[in-house]
Design a protein around this nucleic acid. Structure first.
Lengths: 114, 114
DNA sequence: ACTAGACATCGACATCTGTCAATATCTATC
DNA sequence: GATAGATATTGACAGATGTCGATGTCTAGT
């Protein structure tokens, strides 16, 4: 059973359609929290803008003036939130965006048709 | 000049369209952080789902099992992020959602056409 | 003026968070 | 199997965050 945060985001109507339940809010807040950091927001965008393709950490790290463990930590947060998928190939680790998660989250925040 | 966070959210393409700039990420993260709390997410939804109408704090507080200062604090965070507008009428304080802010933020997170 | 009520501010506290240096783990190659 | 390189984990620490009780401020009535 055990809903992943990504599944949770598909659970409810847009914020401005009807009041979100306390339970749904508890599930969705972690997703927003994962994005609510400048570094993670950039990481997410860097990966998501390569539609579908996988991106190597070794290509992401140079974009930031941060230590390797810090980048690793941020990627872990995004992955555990369900926003990124991880795949290991050889020595390198590649990340792929869960675009449906971003789409669902976006629709929940600000549905244009709401 | 001094861009408010709400203006900032209209500044850039969807996350999955192109990598967000470091500067834009710094501006937008606070908006997401404001929403990244279960209580604030519910507060935002409670106000936003009353399209355009104003909602009295006195109607919001009973929904939560929290002290009055805590609710006041959360509303202040949402207001300073630019997601809510405040108006005082007599002894009561009313909040109104900035729907365009929510819409822009939603489009930035997960543009359906991206 | 005094009071009552709605909301804000302040001060304090425990917890969470972002960061790093040090260290560990894994994999390809020599 | 020893080494080098890519990534993960751990431990530590400063700063941010959510919460509360106490107190302050403003307004409407009495």
């Amino acid at each position: 059973m055990l809903l992943s945060p990504v599944d949770a985001v598909a659970c409810c109507a847009p914020l401005s359609r009807e009041p979100i339940s306390a339970q749904s809010a508890e599930r969705i807040a972690p997703l927003l929290k994962a994005l609510a950091d400048p570094v993670r927001l950039r990481l997410m965008s860097l990966v998501a803008s390569r539609k579908g393709q996988e991106v190597c950490i070794c290509d992401l790290s140079p974009e930031f003036d941060l230590s390797q463990p810090t980048i690793s930590h941020h990627l872990k947060v995004l992955r555990e939130a369900g926003l990124l998928e991880r795949e290991k190939r050889g020595v390198w680790v590649f990340y792929k965006a869960r675009t449906e998660a971003l789409a669902n989250l976006g629709a929940l925040i600000g549905d244009p048709s709401a």
